[in-house]
């Protein structure tokens, strides 16, 4: 088991463990032999050039790739020691536990309140008081409450891009996940909105395991505790080149390919 010293605390890389993971789209191998131990209560960044499989890996973590025809998985991904690909795993439960925030904010075209209440309702929460409490808490955790508390009935689409993205984060939080996956969550946002999301991520990392895919190296350096560098092999399969503490990866990477990528010499 890999152990990390994160912010003065020893964290064990035991929240999520990918073991000998191979992933195929039909005959095309997208990921090869990924072994990665991701610690809980921390932010892990996945970086790498386009097509290196980082988004594919992220999507495997809540089985979003299940929906892709012809995709096939070998190996395991364990969440808290349990393989998420096991037959008895309920994928709806898994996705409640492992939420996802996408590149472009995608609020539903309904009110702010209903956006947040949508998930809890699906999971059986009906009482108005309970839903109000969830909506308020989720919006507070996502640092959006003060900006929207007087207009919860308004359409979510009227919010700014940065607010919409925080709304999407609140929507994920409303179903009390353990893990939050973020696929380029700031690429459609301006610098101020980006910094707000990053601040929010740091706050959330105290209670949630966050995994972020980003092309923005500075963002990975700013926000994450550990960083994984993926690269495309000659046959275009993605593989993990190096994984370690962000502070190490960005000052003293062990692998020449990581060095070349983060210093902008290739990719």
């Amino acid at each position: 088991m890999t152990e990390y010293n994160l912010n003065g605390q020893t964290c064990r890389g035991d929240k999520i463990k990918a073991k000998n993971l191979n992933f195929y789209y039909g005959s095309f191998q997208a990921l090869r032999d990924i072994n990665l131990d991701i610690p809980g209560c921390a932010i892990t960044a996945i970086i790498g050039p386009s097509g290196c499989g980082k988004s594919s890996f992220l999507r495997l973590l809540n089985r979003m790739n299940d929906l892709i025809y012809g995709s096939r998985i070998e190996g395991t991904i364990e969440l808290d020691g349990k393989n998420i690909f096991d037959k008895e795993v309920d994928v709806v439960d898994l996705r409640k536990n492992v939420g996802m925030v996408f590149q472009k904010p995608n609020p539903f075209p309904i009110s702010i309140f209903d956006n947040i209440a949508f998930g809890p309702k699906q999971h059986g929460k009906k009482s108005k008081i309970e839903l109000e409490e969830i909506v308020e808490n989720s919006l507070k955790k996502a640092a959006l409450w003060d900006e929207v508390k007087d207009k919860l009935g308004q359409s979510a689409l009227a919010l700014s891009g940065g607010q919409q993205q925080r709304l999407c984060i609140a929507r994920v939080l409303s179903v009390e996940p353990q893990v939050i996956l973020m696929d380029e969550p700031c690429s459609a946002l301006d610098p101020m909105a980006t910094l707000k999301i990053e601040d929010l991520m740091r706050t959330l990392a105290k209670n949630y395991t966050i995994i972020i895919v980003t092309h923005n190296m500075q963002q990975a350096a700013r926000v994450s505790d550990t960083t994984a560098f993926f690269m495309m092999e000659p046959d275009r399969a993605g593989s993990l080149v190096e994984y370690g503490l962000t502070s190490e990866i960005f000052t003293n990477p062990k692998d020449k390919r990581t060095e070349d990528y983060i210093t902008g010499r290739f990719g």
Binding site: M217, F250, T251, N252, T258
Partner: peptide, 9 residues
């Protein structure tokens, strides 16, 4: 230029 790794060192 936000130098990193060997460049930063």
């Amino acid at each position: 230029q936000q130098p990193l790794a060997g460049d930063l060192r």
